[in-house]
Amino acid sequence: MNTANRADAEHDTIIADTVDWLEKAVIGLNLCPFAKAVHVKKQIRYVVSAASTPEQLLQELMDELQTLSDSDPQAVDTTLLIHPYVLNDFLDYNEFLDVADAALEDMDLAGELQVASFHPQYQFADTAVDDIGNYTNRSPYPTLHLLREDSIERAVEAFPDAADIFEKNIETLEALGHEGWNKLGLPAAK
Rank of each mutant, 00 (worst) to 15 (best):
189 A>C: 04
96 F>G: 05
146 L>R: 04
55 E>H: 03
133 G>P: 03
64 E>I: 00
147 L>Q: 14
165 I>F: 03
69 S>P: 08
93 Y>M: 00
3 T>S: 14
157 E>S: 14
28 G>A: 00
69 S>T: 03
133 G>E: 10
127 T>E: 14
103 A>K: 13
188 A>Q: 10
77 D>F: 13
183 K>M: 09
57 L>H: 00
22 L>T: 02
120 P>K: 05
167 E>I: 06
2 N>G: 08
140 P>R: 08
32 C>H: 02
6 R>E: 12
75 A>T: 13
79 T>S: 12
1 M>P: 15
103 A>D: 06
70 D>Q: 13
151 S>V: 07
77 D>T: 05
60 E>K: 10
44 I>M: 07
167 E>T: 10
121 Q>V: 09
18 T>C: 08
24 K>C: 07
162 A>R: 08
28 G>C: 08
139 S>H: 06
166 F>K: 14
127 T>N: 11
20 D>F: 14
129 V>W: 11
169 N>P: 03
82 I>R: 09
165 I>V: 03
22 L>R: 07
122 Y>T: 04
80 L>C: 11
11 H>W: 14
9 A>M: 12
62 M>N: 10
104 L>W: 02
5 N>R: 09
83 H>Y: 05
91 L>F: 15
142 P>L: 06
48 V>G: 07
7 A>Y: 13
143 T>H: 12
68 L>E: 00
151 S>R: 14
88 N>L: 08
43 Q>M: 05
183 K>G: 07
36 K>D: 12
114 Q>M: 14
129 V>H: 05
45 R>Y: 07
150 D>Y: 13
18 T>Q: 07
27 I>P: 05
48 V>T: 09
116 A>H: 02
72 D>E: 09
185 G>D: 10
45 R>E: 12
106 D>W: 11
51 A>L: 01
129 V>G: 09
83 H>I: 06
11 H>E: 08
61 L>H: 07
165 I>W: 00
27 I>N: 07
151 S>Q: 04
189 A>R: 08
146 L>F: 01
